[in-house]
């Protein structure tokens, strides 16, 4: 690992000043960044530790819940308000990583975590995301874990987060502090598709800080389910994950939220399927139909064709559980 400097500013202003400098990088829980530094994938000159900032709180706001960027993954998952109002988020968090990692990982860090594509991690192999212009190692290589939606010629990596899939479904908003002030971004607009600039994971500028999230109140708490399909029972990234939330009245779906993980460079919100479900009876047949709609445009590579079967099956399965029909 390259030698680096380390600072731990006491306030937000100093953090913002520090991250405006080239070569600096924010560190929160460090569970992703330190790994990448050890692999030589990221080599900042200076780490700006933000753990002194008062961004750990989870608090009710008029129309929902505010979660600080430094709230730990384990803390959010166990929070009483989260569990009652947004059980989907709690389930998604608990499906991720391990207990030890969740005790270190923060909400901001989780959003900013980088892909687990092996070509991104191994500096001896090509990767346009790590080293633009070197080519995509995965496209003609080992691509079992890779995207079936929204990929580009330059990059077929997926975003590995579970938490983000739930947040995309829950219409969360990201709170971002820049030098000029605060801006809000829809969660679904936070992460990017790779396009011709796969080196950019999201729309956060280098000199900006995530301070927190807001999740609006909803009527999905009764009927939501996070399904994670993986190669082992715990401590594995998703082959496919589905966040499903339904608002059901007298057997009729009033509203629906659906998002998928493990399929794209960002959490993949399934709005067409949501639209299809609205006003329909909550039946397995309708869920299957929604799953078919959700899969339109999917395209597989050499090793991940199974996702074309597993994804719709998982959508149906998650919706069935959410509706209480399993």
């Amino acid at each position: 690992m390259k030698q680096f400097q380390y600072v731990r500013p006491a306030n937000q202003q100093s953090v913002l000043a520090a991250i405006a400098q080239p070569g600096t990088k924010i560190i929160a829980g460090g569970s992703n960044l330190v790994d990448l530094m050890k692999h030589g994938v990221m080599a900042p000159d200076k780490l700006v530790d933000i753990n002194k900032l008062p961004l750990r709180n989870i608090s009710g706001i008029s129309n929902g819940l505010h979660i600080g960027a430094l709230a730990l993954n384990s803390q959010v998952a166990e929070d009483q308000q989260v569990k009652t109002k947004f059980p989907l988020l709690s389930q998604a968090l608990n499906a991720g990583a391990s207990a030890q990692l969740r005790n270190m990982a923060t909400v901001g860090g989780n959003m900013m975590q980088r892909t687990r594509c092996p070509y991104f991690y191994d500096t001896a192999m090509p990767c346009n995301k790590r080293a633009p212009g070197t080519g995509c190692g995965a496209k003609e290589g080992f691509n079992r874990m890779h995207a079936i939606f929204g990929f580009s010629d330059k990059c077929i990596a997926v975003h590995p987060s579970d938490m983000c899939v739930a947040l995309a479904a829950l219409d969360a908003t990201v709170l971002i502090q820049g030098k000029k002030g605060v801006r809000k971004l829809k969660f679904t607009d936070f992460h990017r598709l790779p396009g011709v600039t796969p080196e950019l994971d999201n729309n956060l500028a280098k000199d900006e800080l995530i301070t927190g999230l807001e999740i609006p109140n909803n009527n999905f708490a009764q009927h939501s389910y996070y399904l994670k399909v993986r190669d082992r029972a715990s401590y594995a990234f998703a082959l496919i994950s589905v966040a499903a939330a339904l608002d059901i009245h007298n057997g009729i779906i009033k509203d629906a939220r659906l998002a998928m993980g493990g399929v794209a460079h960002k959490p993949w919100r399934l709005t067409a399927a949501e639209q299809l479900l609205k006003g329909k009876p909550a039946t397995v047949a309708n869920f299957e139909q929604a799953a078919q709609v959700a899969m339109q445009g999917a395209k597989a590579f050499k090793d991940n064709a199974f996702k074309l079967k597993m994804a719709p099956a998982s959508i149906t399965e998650a919706l069935t559980h959410a509706a209480g029909l399993a």
């Binding site: 687990r116 092996p118 070509y119 001896a124 290589g141 715990s234």
Partner: peptide, 17 residues
């Protein structure tokens, strides 16, 4: 080159398995 030369990529059973 290996594409899973670590314990996140090379799976062995965990307790839950």
């Amino acid at each position: 080159r290996y594409v899973n030369a670590d314990l996140a990529g090379y799976h062995v059973p965990v307790h839950a398995d």
